[in-house]
Nucleic acid binder design. Structure first.
Lengths: 252, 252
DNA sequence: CGGAGTTTTGAGGCTATTCAAAGGTCGTGG
DNA sequence: CCACGACCTTTGAATAGCCTCAAAACTCCG
């Protein structure tokens, strides 16, 4: 790693995932959030947590596994707009809609805790600091989407793949799930294609080429980034530094 | 229009743009927001309101004109991630960052009112209903990005253009700025290309083809959508219904 | 009236797609 | 425990959509 990353989420609120990632919450606030979380549900791979065009009565906090958020066009093609990892809040974009925009599909066996939409709303109205944290989390997701859009819109296949792999790596590394650049990679080549807007066939050819160049190595459902810095340079995106610390809000 | 649109923003808070679009604010809350707005600034076309990689000390409420939010990759290519119209809040994604992610450029002569980042933060912490509204606005922007990503990732050039034009039309129509499907179109073909991930040359050929098919007509900096429904069908995106009304928060 | 930026048009080339099929892996059921 | 089917990965060949390069016509502005 060539840059200092934000400090890891404080372990006491680890069960809350990224719900309070931008604010150090009081114990009352943490309790309010914890009270929203319904019992853990387990689902197998390929399970559809929530279809699109459904009524968004619940959100989900992902506690284990990977989930894809995808949009299907009338042409039949689907775009994966986000790969969610443990700690992520699922289904938030549809909060402003009467009908869900995305489809949430388990890419691995997963564990989630449901959150009632209406109860979350009233919690936000009651606890301003929770609202602030969720507001900033939403902006962070916006930044991620903007970067993905820029890469998909402007870059060739190898750059798109480099950007995706380094992004996954960074997010997993933060949680200690990518030691030595190696991590479990449950996305199929078709999934990768749906994520970066490329045909599975071409994903395959590009991956093999990157393999040949000793940028990555693959085996089973595991991938190793052999040269993270070079991959980052290929991706061509700057490292982002997120606000953190107790006093940043007041800072002018 | 084949669908009922959400009611127009209530005129009393029109000066607040979309700052309170999802919540009917009290007069105290409206005053708090209005107090954030610094005096109106006017800028010419091509003016850069805020560079990327800058320190995000201010946001902007756009009161007149069009502004592009763009990301530049190291390859030199740039992606316009959002075209902002009057009423939009500019620069919000960078709130979670120490360094701005996007560059804000005036596509027309514009008028903006600056908002101090730190003052906005404390206002959010003080007024939960303002926080809720801004949170939902952020989710709405996320939905817009998700749709744009899906179109850019999966659709051919004519579909991307159809989606972009109908989106601009809907947003302008809401404000009464697109009577009869006709509206002022300040984006150059290069801009359109940067927005949908296509070369200006190919934008030109595709526009001419759509012109030939009597889908659109162009003259000066004005465009007419001759068959909005057909364009919508080409775009292949469902009509979105946003939450609204006084009681939707409590609804289960 | 000159100059810069925009639109338009042409020709050729490249990236990525489509179609097709073989080999591999994994889970399931006989 | 093996056989089978489903899905994934890999490979090839032909094609299509889009890009690059280039240049002319047009518009707008100073």
């Amino acid at each position: 790693m060539d840059e200092d990353l934000p400090p890891p989420i404080d372990s006491p609120s680890d069960a809350l995932g990224r719900l309070g990632e931008f604010v150090t919450l009081s114990s009352r606030e943490r309790a309010a959030l914890a009270g929203l979380l319904e019992p853990v549900q387990h689902w197998p791979r390929h399970h559809v947590l929530r279809h699109e065009a459904a009524v968004p009565s619940h959100l989900y906090l992902l506690t284990k596994g990977w989930v894809a958020s995808s949009i299907v066009l009338t042409s039949g093609k689907q775009q994966i707009v986000k790969v969610h990892l443990p700690g992520d809040l699922l289904g938030a974009p549809s909060l402003c809609l009467t009908t869900t925009v995305d489809c949430l599909t388990a890419m691995t066996p997963i564990a989630v805790r449901a959150i009632s939409r209406s109860r979350l709303m009233t919690t936000i109205e009651t606890y301003p600091r929770i609202a602030l944290s969720l507001f900033l989390s939403a902006q962070k997701e916006r930044v991620a989407l903007m970067e993905n859009l820029a890469v998909v819109g402007q870059a060739p296949a190898n750059v798109r793949i480099a950007a995706t792999l380094t992004n996954l790596f960074d997010r997993l590394f933060e949680r200690g799930d990518a030691p030595g650049g190696m991590f479990h990679m449950p996305l199929t080549q078709r999934d990768l294609g749906d994520l970066i807007g490329i045909t599975p066939v071409h994903v395959n050819r590009t991956l093999r080429e990157m393999d040949r160049l000793n940028l990555i190595k693959r085996s089973d459902q595991t991938i190793s980034l052999l040269d993270v810095d070079r991959l980052r340079r290929i991706a061509g995106l700057p490292v982002r530094h997120y606000v953190s610390g107790p006093d940043w809000i007041a800072s002018d």
